[in-house]
Computed example of a mutant assay.
Amino acid sequence: MLTLNLCKPLAWGRIFASCFLAITLAACNTVPKPPLSQTASASSQQRLQTLAAVKQFSLEAKLAVQYNGKGYTARLDWQHDGQEDHMRIFSPLGQQVALIHRTADSVTLTDQAGKQHQASDVASLTERLLGWRLPLAGLSQWILGIPHPASPYQASYLPGGEPATLTQDDWRIEYDDYQTASIKGITASLPYTTRLQQQDVRLKLVIQHW
């Protein structure tokens, strides 16, 4: 699966479990949270309109995955635009273990051995090959701290108008911190730590570079 050998997820787990544990334990530190609002303010709506105009971005992030009692970490290099996604996943040692390429028609995952696997969507492909679902269709908006427009959602908001939580497509998304950054000439407050959970799958992305 998403391992040095995609057919042996436990081997990857043994190699990276200590790294995942460090990330998980760091997340256990509690800090006081500001009061939240369940209603989008004018600043929330303006922020949503601004970031909805972002159609392209590139980012590097740390990725932690937990499912079925297993924990993995990786580094993610993601290039996104409205028509395509290129997502490269690296081990903490810098070895590429998977390449995900999405087009308007299909998704291809190339494993470490160079074998290509195809499906109609990323979530089903990663669940089949890696054991956990990567919600790429929504993630391209969630990573910006906004919902995608294709389905209903619920949110709670920070005093500055940024979402503290989103619930959409049966995923719960939590944001730990925001920083001001620029993407393609658009400057906004962007989340730097994003947590996603659906049933037993938990993902954590920590932005290193936009």
Rank of each mutant, 00 (worst) to 15 (best):
M1N: 12
M1D: 14
T3P: 00
N5L: 10
N5M: 04
P9R: 11
L10Y: 10
A11F: 12
G13Y: 15
G13P: 00
G13R: 15
R14H: 13
I15S: 08
A17K: 12
A17T: 13
L21E: 14
L21A: 15
I23S: 15
I23P: 02
A27P: 01
N29E: 13
V31I: 08
L36G: 03
S37T: 10
T39I: 13
A40S: 08
S41M: 09
A42W: 10
A42C: 08
S44V: 01
S44F: 08
L48I: 02
L48T: 01
Q49A: 15
Q49C: 12
T50A: 13
K55G: 07
Q56V: 09
Q56M: 09
A61Q: 06
A61W: 04
K62F: 08
L63C: 07
A64P: 00
V65Y: 02
G69A: 02
G69L: 03
Y72I: 03
T73G: 05
T73K: 01
A74T: 03
R75A: 11
L76G: 07
H80W: 09
G82W: 10
I89T: 06
F90N: 04
L93Y: 13
G94V: 12
G94I: 11
V97P: 05
V97Q: 06
I100P: 00
R102H: 07
S106A: 14
V107W: 08
T108P: 00
T110N: 05
D111R: 06
A113V: 03
A113S: 15
G114S: 04
K115Q: 14
Q116K: 14
H117S: 00
S120T: 15
D121H: 06
A123Q: 06
L125S: 07
L129K: 02
G131A: 11
W132C: 09
W132Y: 09
R133Q: 15
P135V: 07
L139P: 06
S140D: 05
Q141P: 00
Q141V: 00
Q141L: 06
W142L: 10
I143Y: 02
I143A: 05
L144S: 07
G145I: 04
I146S: 05
A150W: 11
P152R: 03
P152W: 09
A155L: 08
S156H: 11
L158E: 09
P163F: 00
P163N: 06
Q168S: 09
Q168K: 05
D169N: 15
W171H: 04
E174M: 08
Y175F: 15
D176V: 12
D176F: 13
D176I: 05
D177Y: 11
Y178M: 12
Y178H: 04
S182Y: 00
K184W: 10
K184C: 08
G185L: 06
G185S: 09
I186Y: 03
T187N: 01
T187K: 02
T187G: 02
A188P: 00
L190A: 08
L190P: 00
P191S: 06
P191V: 04
Y192Q: 09
T194H: 02
R195G: 13
D200Y: 01
R202D: 14
K204E: 02
K204P: 00
L205Y: 00
I207C: 04
I207M: 13
H209S: 15
H209K: 14
H209G: 12
H209Q: 15
H209Y: 06
W210I: 03
